[in-house]
Design a protein around this nucleic acid. Structure first.
Lengths: 191, 191
DNA sequence: ATCGTTCTTGACCATGACGTCAAGTAACGC
DNA sequence: GCGTTACTTGACGTCATGGTCAAGAACGAT
């Protein structure tokens, strides 16, 4: 199972590992569009090696994205799942996703991107979407959250926050939070 | 007054005009970051001429920005000024600015940018900011708009919308409107 | 019509990214 | 140890942008 393809030579294996590690660091810090040269430098390897081993950016992303963000997103879903009040649950889901988008450019890229890649990622996104729809539904049932709100709206709100978060070097976290609280309030039913 | 600097040669005058016109078109369609080569092509002139005549992008912008957006922004302020109800006035100001940002990339760039330039532009922005502050204040006086809202918040809301509008090729106008209505609702006082 | 001056041109350099490949290097099997 | 083959390298090609400048073209004063 480790040696499906004939098995790599020792230096190759070493490099693959080094590159993955470097990619985790670099992508974590700068998002999935960080220059590959930077990853190469961080791995102490030449750009060519990355292309040779991973086929290019997409291959590299596929190979690390799971480890990069899956846990974070799944963590949010399960931790939010434990919240009792349906409205709190819905709102804290959004808050946490929004903050994740601000704090982790890579996760944001994943949430934003048209999801080019891996099976697991698609599953992950569906997991999150399904959870979001569930949270929304429960919250609407209490009458506190507007019932003209659709899962697509939620999607859109996340997308928009992602776009804003990408420009975050120009905005402080507090301002970011303050402003999404406005939006959040707007999702509640009218008096 | 027309001939403060010694007066240009005929071809130069012709080109300056052509470039300004082309810049209006190009910037209108693609925002203030459109490649200067595109402006040059549209003006039937070489890139060098633009640099020679306007000193670069900033100079060119300075020379057309007034004509490009001032009227739109002033128009919004005065038209909104005529609205009776203070809350309507405030909200329709935001709606109109936000739509302007969607519809006119160049205006959006002006609203977004740290305002590098011209005197008149600074005056224009202060005019708009002052109006916004006034609208906010009046609206808050009615008790319908949250009174913890500051002019800075309004600024921020406009900035954020601008960032989103920049990515608008990926979003329909209706979705854009729908989502800013959520935010708008969130600016009202709690029951 | 001529000539000095003003203007314009487009080829040129720079930057920063992606992506490729011939040639050199190092691991592995024997 | 040594040859074979897998691996790596880094120089190179490309594209899209911003920006410059010497040399040639156009103007207009005389």
């Amino acid at each position: 199972m480790t040696s499906d393809p004939p098995r790599l030579r020792a230096d190759a294996r070493r490099n693959v590992e080094g590159i993955r590690t470097a990619a985790l660091d670099v992508f974590r810090a700068g998002g999935l569009n960080s220059p590959l040269d930077e990853v190469a430098r961080a791995a102490g390897v030449s750009k060519g090696t990355i292309y040779h081993r991973f086929g290019g950016r997409q291959g590299l992303i596929d190979s690390v994205v799971e480890e990069l963000v899956a846990e974070r997103i799944r963590g949010i879903v399960t931790s939010v799942d434990a919240v009792d009040d349906p409205v709190d649950r819905f709102e804290s889901y959004l808050r946490q996703i929004w903050l994740l988008q601000y704090d982790e450019p890579a996760a944001n890229d994943v949430l934003l991107r048209a999801m080019p890649g891996s099976e697991q990622l698609i599953a992950l996104c569906e997991h999150a979407s399904a959870a979001a729809a569930r949270f929304l539904d429960d919250a609407q049932a209490t009458g506190t959250i507007r019932d003209d709100l659709t899962p697509d709206d939620v999607h859109l709100l996340i997308w928009e926050r992602g776009i804003i978060a990408r420009a975050c070097d120009q905005q402080h976290r507090d301002a970011y939070r303050r402003s999404f609280e406005h939006t959040l309030r707007g999702l509640r039913s009218d008096a």
